[in-house]
Computed example of a mutant assay.
Amino acid sequence: MTLEASVIKDDAVRSTPSGYEVDVRIAWYRSLPIACLENLSVSINEQQFTADQISIRVNDILIPVNKAGELLDEWWFTQDPITAILPTSSPLSSGETATVNVSLATRIPYIIIGPDTALVQRTDVSKEVTIQ
Rank of each mutant, 00 (worst) to 15 (best):
E74P: 03
L72D: 14
T117R: 14
T123A: 06
I113Q: 00
I56A: 11
L40A: 00
I112C: 00
T88N: 02
Y20E: 06
T123H: 06
S93I: 02
I113P: 00
I113A: 00
T117Y: 02
I54F: 05
G95K: 13
P81R: 11
V42N: 02
I34E: 06
S103P: 01
R25A: 03
S31E: 10
Q79C: 09
L104C: 03
V65H: 06
K127E: 14
V100F: 09
R30A: 07
L86I: 06
T83W: 05
N101E: 15
V125C: 10
L32C: 08
D52I: 03
I26C: 05
L92S: 04
V22Q: 02
L37A: 01
I111G: 00
S18N: 11
D80N: 12
T106F: 00
V58H: 06
A105Y: 01
L40I: 05
Q121G: 06
T117P: 06
Y110M: 12
A27E: 07
T78A: 12
T123G: 07
L37E: 01
V125G: 08
I26Y: 03
I112W: 00
C36K: 06
P64C: 06
N45W: 14
A118E: 02
S43D: 04
E46P: 05
E96Q: 14
Q48L: 14
Y29E: 15
I54Q: 04
L32V: 09
V58S: 09
S94C: 10
S89I: 01
A98G: 09
K67M: 15
K127H: 12
I44F: 03
E46R: 13
P91R: 09
I56C: 13
T50G: 08
S94K: 15
V22G: 00
P91E: 07
W28D: 04
D52H: 08
D80K: 11
N45Q: 13
S18V: 07
T97D: 14
I108D: 01
A118S: 15
I82F: 08
E38A: 07
T106K: 02
S103C: 07
T123R: 04
A98C: 09
R57T: 03
P91S: 09
A118P: 03
T88Y: 00
V125S: 07
S93A: 15
I85D: 10
